[in-house]
Design a protein around this nucleic acid. Structure first.
Lengths: 125, 125
DNA sequence: CCGCATCCCTCTAGATACTG
DNA sequence: CAGTATCTAGAGGGATGCGG
């Protein structure tokens, strides 16, 4: 990650794009939301999959893996047969949910405006 | 946009992903930030390009086009030779900058934590 | 039950070039 | 100077299958 294409080093003091590279993925924001709403409980893999409609087995595992690797989620393995694995947000992950919640709120409030504007082809009222 | 891959319709009541599909693009957030910081002035195409290091001519035009089509930015053509085109945020675009600013702030404050965690391989202190 | 590897397809975005 | 079209490489993400 953070490839530094060719000789072109972008400003290393711009963490926003790096954050969006992670959070802008197709499923990250939704999984963080679901985990945040489950607080203070943790969620099993299967339960998570049920609460994120449309996600594939692979993408859920992959996204959870990256969240765990980034310290945004904790992973707890229950040593049973079959083993069950549970996830919850870390403090860091919980703090990330705050700006994400602001974004969700904006989206719910204003996406209809964008849709209307786009549908009318940008004509003034 | 909002392709609805194959037969798989996701929940239409989830505008957050649709917003992230737009804002999560590589340049959108940065351009909105630059336009917001220039307020109340508008910025010419060339000036914008100077303020967004690393962006290509094509991607700047393309991103500005989508912002304009979504009603997030206004486009003003100065009928001179050569023609100059100026951009500024609309009220809607300006309101979007608020949650984006929250995200930027989080990124600046917490990306180092993520980096440290990843660098230590997720080891507890 | 959950994780990981493989294959494949689509979509993004960079390079380049032509028009107004 | 600004906008658009074409081509191409690479990443993201879906389906499937084996391993633990």
């Amino acid at each position: 990650m953070v490839p530094a294409r060719r000789g072109d080093l972008f400003d290393p003091a711009c963490p926003t794009r790096r954050l969006l590279d992670r959070v802008g993925g197709k499923w990250v924001a939704m999984i963080v939301k679901v985990l945040a709403e489950a607080e203070p409980d943790e969620l099993g893999f299967a339960e998570l999959r049920r609460r994120v409609p449309g996600i594939s087995h692979k993408m859920l595992a992959q996204t959870l893996r990256s969240l765990t690797a980034d310290g945004l989620a904790d992973r707890r393995v229950e040593p049973s047969t079959p083993p069950r694995v549970h996830y919850r947000l870390t403090d860091l992950g919980r703090s990330l949910d705050e700006p994400l919640a602001a974004l969700r709120e904006w989206a719910e409030r204003h996406m209809p405006d964008i849709d209307d504007f786009a549908r009318r082809g940008g004509t003034s009222p």
